[in-house]
Design a protein around this nucleic acid. Structure first.
Length: 525
RNA sequence: GGCGCUAUGGUGUAGUUGGUUAACACGCAGCCCUCUCAAGGCUGAGAUCGCGGGUUCGAGCCCCGCUAGCGCUGCCA
């Protein structure tokens, strides 16, 4: 039977990066093994599910390039079927009606309530998971009360003795005694099917062969296996993924950590899908050492250099190297610091993004830069036509030190527009320190007007000659020019900047009064 | 409270059936390069492999105990 996996997020809020990684791993596994990757929206909790969230999930998957096969499934569409299945189990005696009135429980503090209840039960002489008074209610009475309109929940009748077990592809053999599993509710008293029932039923219907999901579902898997068995269905293979935690090993939650956990945050911050995907793939999985060959020095613990798999991988390479066996069991920490703008997200993710930006083929980068510039009204159609060579040269020059796509419209603004800001510190450091620059720079502009042709080489010659003439270090004029031309203190080699900015704009900017004037005003206040 | 999972530098990871100097990447520091900042090159700091026992000639790898973190335990998903 061919492999079928699924990504089954619940649409309550934006797409969590942990969920995104789960989707990635499912996708990689399917592509690797020639299986199918399906999408199912688990919107059974109608109170919390939103259409906007569903959209953001779809958008997120699209951004990451995780295309799904077959039509996406909405779990809520199957609710009637799930209800019927639960009722059928009642008929077959595998489940029973529980007429206990529903106890309202608030979501907040639920964990404490559960623990408290357990403590209370323990002190009353042990916990009995089979103590429900309706478990052994005669069928006739149960039927009578139901048809009389008395509300009831449906609970699975878990056997008194026995144990479930399964072999998790990541966590190994798992076993659990029935005594630890309560008669779980399948159907709410309002007729609403519950999660454990719905996943199992949908996975059966979608013919899922391998369930790859977060480790938070590991212990509940036993309950689901019980449902599979009650239904007489075959149990799929399971692979649970280590969780992604916040710094300090704390839970990474939407509520506490806000948008830092949202995939869209990274897209909007100028991350490349390829880079972020690559980074995500390395959380809980590694390809390093995947190619331990028979000829590697035995026992050395080292992979021969020529067989070492790097961390930078294209999608194809990720697919090729991927295997469930190399997923490990300990949780991964996703680093970030909300109080530090430079460290707002994981260092390595940022590094990887920069690495992609400076090394990827220009044709792949071009549309991304185009979108970024367009979003900031910096795009001109000429960049794709008569000025395409200039555009490529410029992007190739500035991308060397950029970290995100945002940099193209922010730090890189002066290359695409005359309307850019001067960095105050740069003006102070590179211009105001030497008042004579106010005369030298316009003079330098004149020399540049004469450079023929206007290139990095000729502008360099002109500048150095002029520096010698007025007897100052070339660096002084270079750094001052950089600030005049780009508004910044840092950037590419200045002569390449002259070249790319061009003679007209260079000359005009060297003669500009703006940086001098703006800081005078600022200085006088 | 019960059950489960996990534990290698700050972070992500490697460490193959126990074999001697615990490897790689990010980050950090320094140097080189240099017109700045990156990149790149070189060098370095940083891990008694969670803690305590045990087995063994030898333990990050095996066993036991403990601790911590996380998960599950709901008519949430």
């Amino acid at each position: 039977m061919s492999v079928r996996v699924r990504f089954a997020p619940s649409p309550t809020g934006y797409l969590h990066i942990g969920a995104a990684r789960t989707a990635l791993f499912n996708w990689l596994y399917a592509r690797k093994i020639g299986g199918r990757f399906l999408l199912r929206i688990e919107d059974t909790d109608l109170q919390r599910s939103t259409e906007a969230s569903t959209r953001s999930i779809i958008e997120g998957l699209e951004w990451l390039g995780l295309d799904y096969d077959e039509e996406m499934v909405f779990q809520s569409d199957n609710a009637p079927k799930h209800r019927e299945a639960a009722l059928r189990l009642v008929e077959e005696g595998k489940a029973y009606r529980d007429f206990t009135p529903k106890a309202e429980r608030a979501d907040a503090g639920i964990k404490e309530v559960i623990a408290e209840r357990a403590r209370a039960q323990a002190s009353e002489g042990g916990q009995n998971q089979r103590s429900n008074p309706y478990r052994e209610l005669p069928k006739e009475e149960s039927d009578r009360r139901a048809s009389a309109g008395e509300p009831f929940a449906v609970r699975l009748k878990v056997a008194h003795e026995g144990r479930t077990n399964f072999a998790d592809a990541v966590y190994g053999p798992q076993e659990r005694d029935y005594a630890e599993i309560e008669d779980l509710v399948l159907l709410r008293s309002d007729g609403h099917p519950l999660y454990n029932l719905s996943v199992v039923l949908d996975d059966i219907e979608m013919k899922i062969t391998d369930v790859i999901r977060g480790q938070d579902h590991l212990t509940n898997t036993h309950k689901q296996i019980l449902i599979y068995e009650a239904l007489g269905a075959s149990v799929p293979r399971f692979a649970h993924l280590p969780l992604i935690l916040a710094p300090g090993g704390k839970k990474l939650s939407k509520r506490i950590h806000g948008e830092i956990v949202s995939l869209t945050t990274y897209r909007d911050a100028g991350f490349l899908a390829a880079a972020f995907r690559n980074y995500l793939a390395l959380l809980g999985w590694s390809a390093t050492g995947a190619q331990y060959a028979a000829d590697a020095t035995p026992g050395s613990g080292e992979v021969p250099a020529d067989e070492r798999v790097g961390e930078l991988m294209t999608l194809d390479e990720l697919v090729r190297n991927f295997s469930l066996e190399r997923i490990h069991r300990s949780p991964a920490i996703f680093n970030f610091d909300v109080n530090n703008p430079k460290r707002w997200t994981d260092d390595k993710a940022l590094w990887m993004n920069a690495e992609y930006i400076r090394t990827m083929p220009f044709p792949d980068l071009q549309p991304l830069v185009k979108a970024e510039l367009r979003a900031n009204k910096l795009w001109r159609e000429e960049y794709e036509e008569e000025e395409s060579a200039w555009f490529e040269k410029t992007v190739n020059l500035i991308r060397q030190r950029f970290h995100t796509l945002k940099d193209f419209s922010e730090q890189g603004r002066a290359y695409f527009s005359d309307d850019f800001d001067f960095d105050e510190a740069a003006v102070r450091k590179n211009l105001l320190k030497e008042p004579r620059l106010r005369e030298w720079l316009p003079a330098l502009a004149e020399r540049l007007e004469e450079a023929e042709p206007f290139t990095a080489e000729t502008s360099e010659a002109a500048l150095r000659a002029y520096a010698e003439e007025v007897n100052v270090k070339a660096g002084l004029l270079i750094n001052a020019s950089r600030t005049m031309l780009t508004g910044q203190a840092v950037g590419p080699s200045m002569f390449d900047v002259f070249d790319v900015v061009g003679r007209d704009r260079s000359v005009r900017r060297l003669r500009s009064q703006e940086p001098w004037a703006s800081t005078e005003a600022a200085g006088s206040s």
